[in-house]
Design a protein around this nucleic acid. Structure first.
Length: 418
RNA sequence: GUGAGCGUAGCUCAGCUGGUUAGAGCACUGGACUGUGGAUCCAGUUGUCGGGGGUUCGAAUCCCCUCGCUCACCCCA
């Protein structure tokens, strides 16, 4: 048997309705804030990601890169921010719109070892707002993310916030941090000793206990922010407080990439395992320039749909929106089936979901099938009913049933629908 | 990329330190109930014991390799 590749999964019908529900909630909420959907390609020139992520990071290794028939290097998108920015530049939206607000939803691909909440194909829903540098935007975006989780009924979420400064002040901080860590190098785990070389900030969120002890005494970025970054951060915090949104300052919250500036945030779900971030976002005032565009500030976030669903399941939250048939028509004999077909069509014209029996099974088996599928209403059509031009309507919940004339079906349907 | 745990029927699992024909429950199918689901009872079907190799008279069981699943590390755009 050929199975699906590692780390990718089929989404079966019962799951699909959950995804659709999340997508619907997100898109309707985001549009309330002025965001419109954008769809970018599933694959891009690999350079787009390699440039935005930085060539030297090993993010390149975690990408699905392949060559097309002309030998071009392409990559399945591992995230959507760079493609959205690419589209923004390619269509010269700078100058055409002062602020571009878009959301996207779709599959992303990363070649990683799968674990709880981490897959090789996963879906993200995210937004990007390009063109505005004010902290009010940061506040509104975080509020919107917060609002989303409220909407879908996820109660146990924690908002973590930090500022990682800008090109002016961060290098100075990194220097100070390195200075400090160098003195304590022998107390750091081997991984952190490597991180010290290629990504110092990552030392801050190491899980190792000994490293934590060292980090506790480490210099704090808050003290090294330049005046602009500091007041920006201050405004964001004040704004969130004013809106009554709870957050924790997490000085260890960092980003691995250089293009992030100032505000970064993460929403985590404590009911999840090691991969517990369900939404992560931040300001990236330098990315557009790095991709060859003008210097334009921007901010966005992305939510992991699978993780949100996992968290909902952990919190035992029911997920609505199941498109089961409302009615199952059980039929007996050829005449029964023909009559069933007529009735089914009639009902479908009224936008009622009907599943018609197509088997030659006996009645008890048909009823049991409907019950197992969770279909509440069953119509029974046998020889007798056809003769009388009637149908038995059975309520599988209560086990009661009554006989209806075909001509009077419509009146009763309204009752069923509600 | 590293590590740990696990792969036996459609599902959940049992199978003791190697021993003959590999089991249970659930599910499924049929019947008791010739046209009424969920309950009960009876009967029946179900397996490359993940795959390959090795040790052995004999392997689901022990050893090696491999594939897959799960979780963690790593990474986390």
């Amino acid at each position: 048997m050929i199975r699906s590749p590692r780390g990718v999964e089929d989404i079966l019908p019962s799951q699909v309705s959950q995804y659709q529900w999340i997508e619907k909630e997100a898109s309707s909420l985001f549009s309330l804030y002025g965001y419109e959907e954008v769809r970018t390609p599933i694959f891009e020139r690999a350079e787009l990601f390699l440039r935005s992520l930085g060539e030297e990071t090993d993010a390149g290794k975690q990408m699905y890169i392949f060559q097309d028939k002309k030998g071009r290097r392409l990559a399945l998108r591992p995230e959507a921010t760079a493609p959205v920015v690419r589209a923004y530049l390619q269509h010269n939206l700078y100058g055409k719109t002062r602020e571009w607000r878009v959301y996207y939803l779709g599959s992303m691909f990363r070649y990683e070892r799968p674990q709880a909440g981490r897959y090789r194909e996963f879906r993200q829903i995210g937004i990007e707002a390009i063109g505005e540098g004010s902290p009010y935007l940061d506040v509104e975006i975080i509020e919107m993310a917060h609002q989303f989780f409220k909407r879908v009924g996820l109660d146990k979420v924690e908002l973590q916030l930090n500022s990682i400064g800008c090109r002016k002040c961060r290098p100075f901080y990194e220097e100070k941090l390195k200075e400090y860590l160098k003195k304590n190098m022998d107390r750091l785990c081997p991984t952190c000793q490597r991180r010290y070389q290629y990504n110092v900030l990552r030392v801050l969120d190491c899980k190792n206990e000994n490293c934590q002890l060292v980090i506790r005494e480490a210099p704090w970025i808050g003290e090294y922010l330049c005046e602009d970054c500091s007041s920006h951060f201050q405004s964001v915090k004040e704004g969130l407080k004013a809106l009554g949104i709870k957050f924790q300052i997490n000085p260890h919250l960092v980003r691995g990439l250089d293009y992030y500036t100032r505000t970064i945030f993460e929403i985590i779900s404590p009911v999840l395992g090691a991969q517990n971030a369900i939404c992560s976002g931040g300001r990236y005032d330098d990315l557009i320039e790095e991709l060859g565009g003008p210097s334009v500030p921007a901010m966005g976030f992305a939510m992991g749909v699978e993780r949100v669903l996992l968290a909902l399941r952990e919190e035992k939250k029911g997920i609505p929106y199941k498109r089961l048939p409302l009615i199952y028509i059980a039929t007996l004999g050829r005449e029964g089936w023909r009559a069933g077909y007529e009735l089914a069509n009639l009902l479908r014209l009224k936008e009622i979901r009907v599943q018609l029996n197509t088997s030659k099974r006996k009645l008890s088996s048909q009823l049991s099938f409907a019950a197992k599928r969770g279909i509440r209403w069953v119509m029974i059509l046998g020889e007798e009913e056809v003769k009388k031009r009637r149908v038995i309507l059975r309520d599988m919940n209560s086990g009661t049933q009554k006989e209806l004339e075909w001509e009077k079906l419509e009146e009763n349907i309204e009752e069923i629908k509600s």
